[in-house]
Nucleic acid binder design. Structure first.
Lengths: 130, 130, 130, 130
DNA sequence: GTGGTCTAGACCACC
DNA sequence: GTGGTCTAGACCACA
C-alpha cells in the first residue's frame, strides 16, 4: 500500500479498513489483522496502526477482545458512515465555509439554494413515479 | 500553460484570465491579449480562446471594441467574484448537497456549524486586536 | 481482618462468611464458628457477629440448632446468590439509576448495549468451541 | 499533580481538564495551557498531553487554532457530560453487565426496577408540589 | 501471542 | 512559538 503525503498515515490506514468494510471484504464479527501484523505488512510503526484502530474503535466500527484482537462490530457499516461524517465536518466543511466568505455568500443563501435543490429532486422523483 | 482533463480547456483559459485580474496583473481599462495572440501563446485553437472571452464578456468582466480588441471592464474585479460565485453554485454546490444527503446531514446542522466557525474566527480576530 | 468505614461492620462480617461459602471453604451442613469464637477472632463485640448471623439466617444461608450452633443450610450457595442480589438491588441499583439520569441515558439505551455485550460474549464462546 | 496506576495518565489529564471546566476555573473561549507547557508542569511526555487534548477535541470540549493553541469550546460543559457518558459506557457498564450475569439477573428485571425507581421519584416530586 | 501506555527524540507545517 | 505525526523501543496486563 502506498501512502500519500496530504493526509496522516494513520488516517489512510483507517480509511483502508473502511474501504474493506464498504467493499464487503470483511463481515461483522470477523477478526481483522493484528496491530503488529498490519504494521509489518504496511511497513509502519505499530503505534501508527494502533492510532488508526483507536479511531475506528471510538467510532464503533471495530471492537476489541483483550488478548485476542480486533473484530468488526455488528454495525460496522453505519459506523463507517458516522466516521465519514466526522471527517467531512472536520476537513471539508471549514474549506467550504472559507470559500463562502471569500465569495461573499451568506449561509442564508446556501439554505435557499438547498431547498431549491431538494425541490428539484422531489420533482424528479414524482415524475419517475408517474 | 498546462491544461488538465477534468475541465473544458476554454473554462481553464477563462480561469487563467480571472487569476490575472485577481492578482492585479491587469487593471480596469487595459487591453488584454488578442484572441489570436493568446491562441498562439497557449497553443490552442483560436475558437477555444474565443469561447473563453465570450464567457467572460457575458459575465461583464471584459468588453469588446469592434476591430480593436478586448478590454477589462471597470468592475472586472467584482465581476470575477460574481462569476466565481456562479460557477461555485452550479458546480460545487450540487456535489456538496449530494454529499450532505449521502452522509445524512441536515442543512440546519450545517448552519449551526457555520455559526460555530464564525465564532472561532471572531475570537481569533479579537485577540489580535487586543 | 480489616474493616472499612464505608459499610457497617456486621455487613462486612456477613460478607466474609459469604466469601467462605462461595470459595467452597465450607460445605452444606458444616458447623460454622460460634458467635463467641468468631467475635474473639475478629476482635469485635459478640452482638456484632450475632447481627451478621441473624442476617444470614434471614436469608436462609445458615440455620440454628438451639444450644449447639449455626450450620450451613443445604442451599447455602444459591442463598448467598439471592442475598447478594438483594444487596445489589438495594444498594448499587439506585446509584446506577441516579447516574443514568445524571448522564441523560435512557433504560432503552442500556438494553441495547446489553444485547451488544451479550453478542460479543457469544462470539468469543463460539470461537473457543471451534 | 499525582497520577494513580489504575487509569492511563492521558485519561487522568483529560479528567483534570474536565474538572477545571466543571469547576468554572476556565470559561468558554479561554486558551488552555500549551501541550509542551503542561507536559513540563505535569512532568510527562508531550505526546501524553497530546493524547489527552486529542480526546477532548474529539468530544468537542476544546478546539484548536493552528499555531496558536487550544481553546475551550462554547459548549465545553455539555461536551464534558457527553464524554463522561462515553467513559461510563466503556468502563462501568461492562462491569455492571458482568455482575448481572453473575447474579443471574435479566435485563428485563432491571428495566422493571428502573420503572419502579422512576415512579417513586415522581411521587416524591408530586408530594413536594402539593 | 494479543493490545495499551509511555518515553525520547525527530521532523514538519503554520503563525 | 504553536500543534501534528511518526519512529524506535520499552514495559505492562491479559490469554
Amino acid at each position: 500500500m502506498r501512502f500519500n503525503d496530504t493526509q496522516p498515515i494513520f488516517l489512510q490506514i483507517a480509511d483502508w479498513v473502511c474501504e474493506r468494510i464498504l467493499a464487503r471484504d470483511w463481515s461483522p464479527g470477523d477478526r481483522i489483522p493484528s496491530v503488529r501484523d498490519l504494521a509489518v505488512e504496511l511497513e509502519v510503526n505499530p503505534n501508527t496502526v494502533m492510532r488508526a484502530y483507536e479511531r475506528l474503535q471510538q467510532n464503533e466500527v471495530i471492537f476489541n477482545k483483550r488478548g485476542i484482537g480486533y473484530f468488526l462490530s455488528e454495525d460496522a457499516y453505519p459506523g463507517v458512515l458516522a466516521m465519514r461524517k466526522t471527517e467531512f465536518c472536520e476537513q471539508e466543511l471549514p474549506l467550504f465555509f472559507k470559500k463562502l466568505s471569500l465569495l461573499n455568500i451568506s449561509i442564508k443563501e446556501i439554505e435557499e439554494k438547498y431547498n431549491q435543490f431538494q425541490n428539484s429532486l422531489n420533482q424528479g422523483e414524482n415524475e419517475k413515479e408517474q
